[in-house]
Amino acid sequence: MNEQTQTASEKAAKFSLNKALQLVEIAVEPFPKAALFELAERGWNTTFQQVLACMISVRTLDEVTIPVSERLLTRAPTPDRLLELREEEVTELIAESTFARTKAHNMLEIARLAWTRYEGVLPCDEALLLSLPGIGPKCANLVLGIVAGQAKIGVDIHVHRVMNRWGYVQTSTPEKTLRVLEQKIPKETWIEVNRLLMPFGKNICTGRRPHCPTCLLLPICPQIGV
């Protein structure tokens, strides 16, 4: 085992998640918040609005997600207002998002369900959210955390990558990372992990050419795989 590997192993063994999150909080301050958190702060914070925004965000950059979501939600902030639009109109409103036509179809299906079964108010319920077309565990967890304040972790590629570089998990997919984190991390930090690590992974601990030399976490980071 060479010196660099020994150093990484030693850092991983001593790694403190609480300390890391404190430093990440400082590090991400200059950067935009993760899209769904930013939209919630702007007032788009109902279950229905967050579900639509999260659907838009799938495989779409935050820089696109935020303005596209605001354009759609300004036009159709509630299920009944969305149902006034044809599928082609919804598709056009979210055209910059990936798979816009499929997302538009699913959005209208969700709006119909909310209107016919729940009197226009989509409940923030885990089983219901996971049953919605186009909504997987990541989106469901984000909505539950942001709207209802439930202890949930939304693991995207950024959270997955950062946690593996820290040596906090050794996993091959975001789904596996989620399962491990739910066992290892205290529930009171679950929402914070998602809120902080998404902008950290997007702007600092990037997939290619991470900004290690200027990162506040360099003294404690094992830099596994970097």
Results as ranks from 00 to 15, higher is better:
residue 1 M to P: 07
residue 2 N to S: 08
residue 2 N to P: 03
residue 3 E to M: 09
residue 9 S to L: 14
residue 14 K to A: 10
residue 16 S to T: 15
residue 18 N to D: 12
residue 19 K to I: 15
residue 20 A to P: 01
residue 21 L to F: 06
residue 23 L to S: 05
residue 24 V to W: 07
residue 25 E to H: 10
residue 25 E to Q: 11
residue 27 A to Y: 12
residue 33 K to Y: 04
residue 33 K to R: 10
residue 34 A to F: 07
residue 34 A to N: 05
residue 35 A to H: 09
residue 36 L to F: 02
residue 37 F to G: 09
residue 39 L to N: 04
residue 42 R to Y: 03
residue 43 G to Y: 08
residue 45 N to I: 01
residue 48 F to R: 00
residue 52 L to Q: 00
residue 53 A to Q: 01
residue 56 I to S: 03
residue 58 V to P: 03
residue 58 V to F: 07
residue 61 L to A: 11
residue 62 D to G: 14
residue 63 E to K: 08
residue 69 S to Q: 02
residue 69 S to I: 01
residue 69 S to G: 06
residue 71 R to Q: 15
residue 78 T to N: 15
residue 79 P to R: 06
residue 79 P to N: 09
residue 80 D to V: 15
residue 80 D to W: 11
residue 82 L to V: 01
residue 83 L to T: 12
residue 85 L to T: 13
residue 86 R to E: 11
residue 87 E to C: 09
residue 96 E to K: 13
residue 97 S to I: 09
residue 98 T to D: 00
residue 99 F to T: 01
residue 101 R to Y: 02
residue 101 R to P: 02
residue 102 T to P: 00
residue 103 K to Q: 04
residue 104 A to Q: 06
residue 106 N to W: 04
residue 106 N to A: 04
residue 106 N to S: 04
residue 106 N to R: 08
residue 108 L to S: 08
residue 110 I to F: 02
residue 114 A to R: 02
residue 115 W to M: 10
residue 116 T to F: 05
residue 119 E to Y: 08
residue 121 V to Y: 00
residue 121 V to E: 03
residue 122 L to K: 12
residue 123 P to G: 10
residue 124 C to A: 14
residue 124 C to D: 14
residue 127 A to H: 09
residue 129 L to G: 11
residue 129 L to N: 11
residue 133 P to M: 07
residue 135 I to W: 12
residue 135 I to E: 11
residue 136 G to Q: 10
residue 137 P to M: 05
residue 137 P to Y: 12
residue 143 V to D: 06
residue 145 G to D: 10
residue 146 I to M: 06
residue 146 I to H: 03
residue 148 A to H: 01
residue 148 A to T: 03
residue 151 A to H: 05
residue 152 K to R: 07
residue 152 K to C: 02
residue 153 I to L: 08
residue 155 V to S: 04
residue 155 V to N: 03
residue 157 I to T: 12
residue 158 H to F: 03
residue 163 M to V: 05
residue 166 W to S: 03
residue 166 W to I: 05
residue 167 G to Y: 02
residue 168 Y to P: 08
residue 169 V to Q: 14
residue 171 T to G: 00
residue 174 P to D: 13
residue 176 K to D: 12
residue 179 R to V: 14
residue 180 V to E: 14
residue 182 E to Q: 13
residue 182 E to R: 08
residue 186 P to S: 15
residue 186 P to N: 13
residue 186 P to R: 15
residue 189 T to N: 12
residue 194 N to W: 03
residue 198 M to Q: 10
residue 199 P to W: 15
residue 199 P to C: 12
residue 204 I to P: 00
residue 204 I to D: 02
residue 205 C to R: 01
residue 206 T to N: 04
residue 207 G to R: 11
residue 207 G to P: 08
residue 208 R to C: 05
residue 209 R to D: 09
residue 215 C to I: 12
residue 216 L to A: 04
residue 217 L to D: 02
residue 218 L to Q: 10
residue 222 P to H: 09
residue 226 V to K: 11
